[in-house]
Design a protein around this nucleic acid. Structure first.
Lengths: 223, 223
DNA sequence: CTGTTCTAACTGTTAAAACAGGTAAAACAA
DNA sequence: TTGTTTTACCTGTTTTAACAGTTAGAACAG
């Protein structure tokens, strides 16, 4: 067994290609929810063997994007008010804790990357030409950065698993229902407030920001 | 596509059998850590096809029990002080939040299952004949029940993903190093205290309990 | 002895086909 | 027409085998 190797820049494995292709299909809402997918049909669509599709679906299961019923197949789980609320409950738990960590070591870390992302959020949000998908991606990066700055790899991984599905739903919400949910350019202000408050107040502010997001998506699911 | 079906009590799929067999091997410490495993050798050992083993390994990856390097293979990740501390950080985050929820709805839920598990913990712990593996399993169930009572399916799932590895490490710790880490029969007292305190105090108590567990395991990893 | 090259045995990955089971419509018997 | 049975096609699952790459060692040339 070899000890070292370049280890990166390797050509992507076919399974990874299929994984990304399927993820894209799901995030763009081109897969019907709730009904079981034919693995053979998927294989034909992405030009791969069934076994490769199965492996990719397993990875998507890890991300919480699909659910697997053993002798029955794979499908997109139904999104209910309960599952949505639960995911936002966990999201708030992570982000409020992350904010507390941020405040705690506020001197030793550089907030510039976070400020840049916040400004980019506000710019797209206020731009009449800005599109929902671009905003969704930047907005997601902004919140992921907050969690990343807390410094816990495990929390970052878990946060990403939760929010992949949020991103999907956010996009679908805008694309399908055409509901405007702009945040009125308050992200930079949020960052500035966070860094000038104490732990408890900052966490509470973050809690409010997340809850506002939940109420938007709940409107979408009931529409 | 059929609409309904018995859906449970089905014969276990071969992949699930392999998954459980491999999980057992890992948890009992019979797989060497850090070095890459030969999927063909594993397949021969559990009498299954390579592809089935690969699928099972993917599930184990979801549990955080193994890590996959794309064109290189699967191995047990190295346990360092940093990874261990990070996992306990998340564990504390979950359990303290769970305890807050417990207190918040203390009237509307039945603590009996929790009390039973606490007593069983203490019984095995104080029993001179009690073995580490049995205690590890009950102790794990006890903490999982605390989280489950909080009522968030997502939090329960994430907690289980974290602690599968803890359980493994706990077992290895005892089996290999023979270090006694008994908790001196304080689990029932812990439950009683939790239910008589306010949210902040209960969370702090829980925090202490988890931190004590971490310090034990840190001793094990440095030994 | 030293350096190169070829070979054989391993690795993970992917494909194609066979297996096991369920469903639904066509074919047949009453 | 009605009820039964067969047949064909679908599903997920599992196997066997081939592909692609790497490593270690033997064989050989200098």
């Amino acid at each position: 067994m070899p000890a070292e190797r370049s280890w990166s820049n390797e050509p992507k494995t076919k399974e990874e290609q299929v994984y990304e292709r399927l993820k894209e299909l799901i995030l763009k809402g081109e897969i019907p929810a709730k009904e079981f997918l034919s693995q053979r049909t998927l294989a034909a669509k992405v030009d791969a063997a069934v076994i490769t599709v199965r492996a990719a679906l397993r990875q998507l299961e890890n991300d919480g994007l699909v659910e697997n019923v053993p002798r029955w197949g794979v499908r997109l789980p139904e999104e209910t008010e309960a599952t949505l609320t639960d995911r936002y409950y966990m999201r708030a738990l992570f982000e409020c804790e992350a904010v507390r960590q941020l405040i705690r070591k506020r001197e030793s870390l550089d907030p510039q990357s976070l400020i840049d992302l916040a400004r980019e959020c506000d710019r797209i949000d206020l731009d009449p030409e800005g599109n929902a998908e671009a905003f969704g991606n930047v907005h997601y990066s902004f919140h992921r950065e907050i969690v990343a700055l807390a410094g816990s790899p495990l929390m970052s991984r878990m946060f990403e698993r939760i929010n992949l599905k949020n991103l999907f739903f956010w996009n679908a919400y805008h694309t399908w229902h055409g509901i405007d949910s702009r945040h009125l350019g308050d992200h930079e202000a949020l960052v500035m407030s966070l860094f000038s408050l104490d732990e408890a107040a900052a966490a509470e502010l973050m809690e409010g920001h997340v809850q506002r997001g939940l109420s938007f998506e709940l409107k979408g699911i009931n529409a």
